[in-house]
Design a binder for these strands. Structure first.
Lengths: 230, 230
DNA sequence: AAAAAAAACTGATCTATATCAATTTTATTA
DNA sequence: TAATAAAATTGATATAGATCAGTTTTTTTT
């Protein structure tokens, strides 16, 4: 398809999305032959709300934020790591994207036509059920996000965000955030100033240890409590 | 499966969910043989957040509200009409429900084991892709909901709700709401008092005509504008 | 390394919306 | 049909959090 040298290869790719484990070597070869591998720099937009949803994107290396825009406001719905896929939510439904995604660091993104993915879904039922599973996992996250964003006050929302980053995204109590303060605000649906203020408050109250983008959880218990009481 | 007389029959059911159109007569027979048909009264809960997600529910007659709860607050995520299914989001992912549903009027609900649905998905790829389409349609609605709830102020949120009810739920400019004022507040994420006040304001400003639960749109244009500016 | 731009931070002020407290209307039950 | 309970409504008050207007720090560019 394209002749540029590619860094990765679908068959041996160590960062494969879970559902691709259900594909045979031949099927993976089909994907490999029909994908593009694109290097994006930090901050660059990899897909744009309102644009066509012709491709499924795979973050092979790096990370991204997925967000929706309305007027000049932005809401970050989720953080995506290597292994995550973008665009499954358009499959068999509509071909216009309802969100944008931008890289949080220099990243390698694979792009595969939705046609190829649709074909594989039709031909491999294990792949199909795995796609359903992936879609439903995303939806499950949405439920938590929507509760956090609509039912909790700033402290609860920020506690949710910190717990999400440490537990689900980085899987460590001590992390190096890839998000700016504004990003954190866009993730928690508050003003940048509020995010900064409460982050500082958490630091002063010894709930977290925060130095620039280095964040360490000191008290899980208090964060969980804040998340709970909202 | 059960011997009580049933009002409906899957093969001839006029209120079939879209994806069931993809099933053969034999497959529909399998569903019909394995379903329960339950009559619920207005206000009764048909499934509960935190409970097991063993069944897919189909609203054969009536309507329901689907909501999430946190502490004592409630957020209505969507209104469900006859033909809508509940529970697809648990398929192949988890067996605990993340939301509750309650009837808005006396309703007939069919209950089918997720096992039957899973089997059909595995055996009928058209059904499977139709399920994916349905799931993604729901997700698409979520995007709109989350933008409305997090990025817009009260007037914009209420305009969104009115447009949603008239355009997507009832498909008419003149409707009879099944929701209480509190329900409208829970749908738009505001206090009951605010919902009442702004509804009245819309009425006084001749944007809508509201008499109890009878609602009629007078100015689409203003509602769309309010929705847009948020 | 200096200059410029962007991001992070801080304090003061403002406002959208919740909460509270009561009253009226509607629906339900005795 | 009266009595009771629930829902709807209204006005007054309180407040969480946004906005504004800077200053400081960090990052990027020259």
């Amino acid at each position: 398809m394209n002749n540029r040298k590619k860094k990765y290869n679908c068959i041996s790719c160590p960062k494969k999305a879970n559902c691709f484990d259900k594909l045979s070597k031949e099927e993976l070869k089909l994907v490999d032959d029909n994908r593009l591998e694109i290097k994006y720099n930090k901050g660059e937009i990899i897909c744009k709300q309102g644009g066509f949803a012709y491709n499924i994107l795979h973050i092979t290396e790096g990370s991204a934020k997925l967000y929706v825009e309305h007027n000049d406001k932005k809401l970050i719905l989720s953080l995506l790591n290597h292994t995550d896929l973008i665009g499954l939510h358009s499959l068999f439904y509509n071909n216009v994207l309802e969100y944008s995604a931008a890289c949080l660091e220099n990243s390698y993104i694979c792009s595969i036509s939705t046609n190829i993915i649709s074909t594989l879904i039709r031909e491999n039922i294990e792949f199909a059920t795995s796609i359903i599973s992936t879609l439903n996992k995303d939806t499950s996250r949405f439920y938590n996000r929507i509760i956090s964003l609509t039912q909790k006050q700033l402290h609860g929302r920020l506690a949710d965000a910190i717990l999400h980053f440490t537990k689900e995204i980085y899987n460590s109590d001590e992390i190096e955030l890839k998000l700016s303060r504004k990003d954190i605000a866009d993730f928690t649906g508050m003003s940048t100033e509020s995010a900064i203020r409460i982050l500082k408050e958490f630091h002063n109250d010894k709930i977290i240890d925060l130095d620039g983008k280095k964040l360490k959880i000191i008290s899980h218990q208090i964060l969980e409590k804040l998340s709970e009481i909202g």
